[in-house]
Design a protein around this nucleic acid. Structure first.
Lengths: 135, 135
DNA sequence: CCTTGACCTTCCAGTGACTGGAACCCCTAT
DNA sequence: ATAGGGGTTCCAGTCACTGGAAGGTCAAGG
């Protein structure tokens, strides 16, 4: 199968698939014309990667997960460990983002947003000390 | 003032301050020895930038916000507009992250995580169709 | 005066995970 | 023969820094 069809089926742009080959995540064979010739297994792997990426795993995590997937004698504990670490990072990021959101929402709410120059948002940015803790 | 002290006061690494000069966010003068000589105004600007960055504004947003801050005849509506767009992006990102988190938490919960190979996490990744919608 | 160590300078390269674009080749249909 | 829609490689750019090398400067202590 050619890269375009694989892209459609795996849900990844051709560019990304070429990139994944570059970094050794997939190793499709080549046809006589120099085109990449993907097998069903390749497509399956790429779909696996696409799904793992949408769950936010890093490429290196994906590499490991793929290896575990192909290792029939894996321990599920290993997979779970990776997922748990990732989950913890997501939680941390969520916490930070939520904090940002709260502060920002508060500031946006406080700004009247008309043609006058007074602006609580700029005031907050300017005053390193003021209005930082507690919200 | 030298860059190290400014770094301490503004809460930014020296490297970052040099980078900000590179991209034209601050333009400190130079002393006879070639060292950057920062004024109080520079420090204030850098603290402003540091705060804006912790709120997640892009560098380009920061540039605009700084310009607005220094423009006494600004309209607060302009500031508010930038903040609202940014807030919307944060909300979108939060939504995506939360979705990721939910799916991932579900999978982690379902995986027994022992030395056996069976693993719902890998199963999910492998089956593009299954178990995708609804959780 | 010399040295030590902490600071400062510039410049180059790398990060993560792609993405855009140029220049070129190949295949199929008309 | 040609037109189009594939495919190929390679290089550069994204974002906001960050690390490191190679070298200049300054204040304090011996």
């Amino acid at each position: 199968m050619n890269i375009g069809d694989v892209a459609d089926r795996a849900g990844l742009p051709p560019k990304t698939i070429r990139y994944y080959e570059d970094i050794g995540l997939v190793t499709p064979h080549r046809g006589a014309n120099g085109y990449r010739a993907f097998t069903e297994t390749d497509v399956h792997k790429l779909a696996f990667l696409a799904r793992a990426r949408t769950l936010g795993f890093t490429i290196e995590d994906c590499r490991t997960l793929l290896a575990l997937y192909e290792d029939e004698s894996r321990a599920s504990a290993e997979v779970k460990h990776i997922a748990e670490e990732h989950l913890a990072q997501i939680d941390e990021k969520l916490r930070q983002l939520q904090q940002m959101r709260d502060t920002l929402a508060h500031l946006v709410h406080a700004c009247h947003g008309d043609d006058r120059p007074d602006c609580p948002i700029l005031s907050d940015l300017a005053n390193t000390e003021a209005g930082r803790s507690g919200r």
